[in-house]
């Protein structure tokens, strides 16, 4: 065995650099292949963190994604009452306004859900949202009197119908939520038109997938566990679809030991208490998924399930306060839902 007496090279002599060359080549080859990785970009906008991830060659991806962000930024300006001359600001002053284009479509989608849910989703919640300080991160518990007055004013106003608002009474709209869903829809439309094959646009949990996910074909969408922000309550497997969630755990504050969350019941003016902790709605478009999720959260399990079952193409995953999970009939058929134990992220 020990006949090999030819002295080997000492360390640092040419012989050992050959393995090093092989090693470098191997590393380069291995990093070049493997699972496809999406091009991702995130930006703070529309009051949340928006992430666009696309599967496309880097150069094309950068351009398309940047245009998608521009489009969303433009929609953010349109749907905000911040600008004095904006249609929403003029509505708030009681002027007659003709709503056109994007704003009209956002309102139309919102009103469709408002009608179907008997007002459980209400686009005219602006004054109450403001009263609770929820949009500006200055939360406070308004007095019962303030809430009553705001509710009365809201009841007295004629909700805009169609594209035209009559003027007269001020209409204080809050389209922030639905506008976010609409912006996601428009970003996806732009990416598809730009030739991007597949990807996800996720605006703080309101998201829409498009195309086939390279590798596994379907998209895996995690639903956050209401009880712990880094765990998943379950995982949805979907094709091209929009998903939006409303939950009482997203934004809340505590005052005098009472916990107030950010989803207001249009009927009472207080945070909705319907026995649900989180509602995830799947729908063909994100603006509808968004409005439906809010409506179902306010309606509660029984009426909410009925609303979803009656809405074409909509499905839902509802998590009740006791942790029970309710699924609409269409889940399991094309869309899969797997409930997760704690620590699902440890599983491959």
């Amino acid at each position: 065995m020990m006949t090999d007496t030819a002295p080997g090279p000492a360390l640092g002599e040419p012989r050992l650099s050959l393995p090093l060359c092989i090693l470098l080549t191997a590393v380069l080859a291995l990093t070049g292949c493997g699972e496809p990785r999406p091009y991702k970009e995130t930006r703070f906008m529309m009051g949340t963190l928006v992430e666009v991830s696309v599967y496309a060659p880097e150069k094309a991806a950068v351009q398309a994604v940047s245009r998608a962000f521009d489009r969303m930024a433009q929609l953010e300006r349109v749907a905000h009452a911040g600008h004095e001359d904006s249609p929403l600001a003029r509505l708030r002053r009681g002027e007659a306004v003709v709503l056109e284009g994007d704003l009209a479509r956002i309102l139309e989608a919102g009103m469709a859900v408002a009608r179907a849910s008997s007002g459980a989703f209400d686009p005219a919640m602006g004054e109450l949202v403001d009263l609770w300080g929820l949009s500006m991160d200055r939360p406070r518990r308004p007095s019962d009197g303030e809430i009553g007055e705001a509710l009365a004013r809201k009841a007295g106003l004629a909700l805009p119908s169609g594209a035209c608002c009559p003027g007269g009474a001020p209409v204080w709209m809050d389209l922030g939520g639905v506008a976010k869903g609409y912006a996601v829809d428009m970003a996806v439309e732009l990416l598809v038109d730009a030739g991007v094959a597949s990807g996800v646009v996720n605006a703080g949990g309101d998201l829409r997938t498009f195309g086939r996910r390279p590798g596994r074909g379907i998209w895996k969408i995690g639903i956050q566990d209401p009880d712990s922000p880094q765990e998943l309550a379950g995982v949805l497997q979907v094709g091209q679809l929009s998903v939006a969630t409303s939950g009482d755990y997203q934004r809340y504050f505590e005052e005098d030991g009472v916990r107030y969350h950010h989803i207001l019941d249009p009927a009472t003016g207080y945070p909705a208490r319907s026995g649900l902790r989180s509602v995830t709605v799947l729908a063909p478009d994100c603006v509808t998924a968004d409005a439906l999720a809010t409506a179902v959260f306010v309606l509660g399990a029984e009426k909410g399930m009925k609303l979803l079952e009656g809405w074409p193409g909509a499905e839902g995953v509802l998590i009740k306060e006791d942790g029970t999970v309710l699924l609409t009939g269409g889940i399991g058929d094309g869309i899969r839902f797997e409930r997760a134990g704690k620590g699902i992220r440890d599983q491959g």
């Binding site: 699972e35 992430e51 998201l207 995690g222 956050q224 995982v235 969630t245």
Partner: peptide, 10 residues
């Protein structure tokens, strides 16, 4: 790192 899901709805 490699993520379990493509996106999280919250």
């Amino acid at each position: 790192g490699r993520e379990v899901v493509d996106a999280v709805t919250r």
